[in-house]
Design a protein around this nucleic acid. Sequence first.
DNA 1: CTGAAAGCGCTTACAG
DNA 2: CTGAAAGCGCTTACAG
Lengths: 340, 340
Amino acid sequence: MNAPSSKRRRATGRATLQDVAAAAGVSPITASRALRGERSVAAELVERVTAAVAQLGYVPDPAARALASARSNQVVVLIPLLSNALFVDLLDAAQRTLLAAGYQSLIGVTHYDPEEEEALLRTYLMNRPAGLLVTGFDRTDAARALLQGSGVPYVHVMENRADTALHSVGFSQQAAGQAMTAELVRRGYRRIAFAAAQLDPRTLQRAEGYRAALGAAHDPALEFMDAAPSSLALGAVMFERVLREAPDVDAIFFNNDDLAQGALLQALRQGVKVPERVAVVGFNDLTGGDQMLPPLSTVRTPRREIGLEAARMLVALMRREALPEASMDLGFELVLRESC
Amino acid sequence: MNAPSSKRRRATGRATLQDVAAAAGVSPITASRALRGERSVAAELVERVTAAVAQLGYVPDPAARALASARSNQVVVLIPLLSNALFVDLLDAAQRTLLAAGYQSLIGVTHYDPEEEEALLRTYLMNRPAGLLVTGFDRTDAARALLQGSGVPYVHVMENRADTALHSVGFSQQAAGQAMTAELVRRGYRRIAFAAAQLDPRTLQRAEGYRAALGAAHDPALEFMDAAPSSLALGAVMFERVLREAPDVDAIFFNNDDLAQGALLQALRQGVKVPERVAVVGFNDLTGGDQMLPPLSTVRTPRREIGLEAARMLVALMRREALPEASMDLGFELVLRESC
DNA sequence: CTGAAAGCGCTTACAG
DNA sequence: CTGAAAGCGCTTACAG
């Protein structure tokens, strides 16, 4: 009768590749190839398949695709924290680029914990992702082996390394730390403190740059490190502490803008003049820096561009296209407002 | 010989349910049932399967599962913006809860655009998600039909509605707007402005609350609406504008904290005394409000709790467990600091 | 409580 | 350039 064939017991009601093939008068394999843009299909058949797809409103089933091809259309993005605007910006840009290229993003938050990252990697690799975006180069050996052994392309974001063939899009954190410190020196500051929170690998690289810029003038007593997460409130506390413990300080380089903004607000509360009594500079150029009193001098980091370019690089890798370069240094920019 | 059977041409090398079943001496179906915790399996067999899983390091293939069961282990989370800390907090909490329950999150950003939301829904529904979290009740009819027709459980976040059987976790935006306005009235303010950006549905609900609290005293000339996205910089501009266009204003209720914080900084720049000349209050209690000069009075919204509880509710729905209630009102709290 | 059979909707590998 | 067959690794539906 007209009842659906009893053979198709669990049909979902959606049009399948079979239906498309039948409507186009080709075999399912040919329909599949036409759909995926394989060039070995006659132009006329491609047209017929395309028409059938449009007519039936066909959409491929990602699960069936993943099962048959051992590869999904999802990209895993591993970032340290969602509460840091830096990573949210990067994620947003990467996500849009990937979506436009037909890939969905699966986000994993590592909380700056290598063990947690390794666990996430184990879990997400089971999904047979098409690719991965990972933050920085610092991870467990097991995580590295997992990435390497997966056969899945991946790109490192935020950092660059010249000594490897690994794919990366970022900038030199050390060079950025060095450049801002050098600018302070150039402006005549002599007792320059470095105040950092979180103490993740990139923060420590910036500290290296700070030390390099200071050379012999570097005084370890002017380094203030706090492993707590970065925040406005912590910046206020650190500002007060630096002035108390190093009264002769004349400039403070905070490793993140939220710290620096908190410091500026604390200075206002204490009546400490910035930059006259002490200069304050930050890092990243987060929202609000230009609204501070005085407006905050900082290092602008290209996080959106990093997200965009890393996604592009990954897409090329996933499509097995040739890559112009294995690693991109997107640089940084000193934004000198009135706080130094 | 010892070579793998030529029948298994595309094996991936991972242990399969077949391997587990063989090692446990049961059929694959029984292994599958034991794995998924179906209660109809003898305790002893469950033990043997569990042991085999551990021994082989077996992990189920999500794609095969999704294909066979027409349901994946992924939950789609649709939020308006990643650049608003409010939604990032909600997302973070929901994500953790879902991950702990064995579900992965697929994030979609709608940019407050119903058309974009509808498109995302179409795309993501193809993945046969196990469930969805959607923001608010405002969407296209097609999107509503898509959700309804999918058969997939979903929970609304951020808002509540008593007049429907729809699942939701949030609070009354209108009541929150009304409560803060009433507090300002109680404190003796008489010319209370409402300044809003983005103008999304929830902002407009807060505006309703503002009007309701003012009653006959409500003056449309004191409403300042700007459809641009919320930011510190816009808050500064709006503050200046309100004072210029309504010089007799004695309090300003900003619909989001970033606006209010920007206003506070602008007041500082202009030398306008807060709250003496004009009171300033915000909404959401975002990071930094307590660091402002003066510390910002605002409405604390339970976004993390919303993410957590909505995820819990969804998990119960996905597991077909009984639900204590279809809708949860998590309330809000006035945080009265020194800016009013 | 357990299982043999069939099927989910695609793509791979092999032919021609 | 095109296709018939087989298979990816699970779960559903039917029996018993």
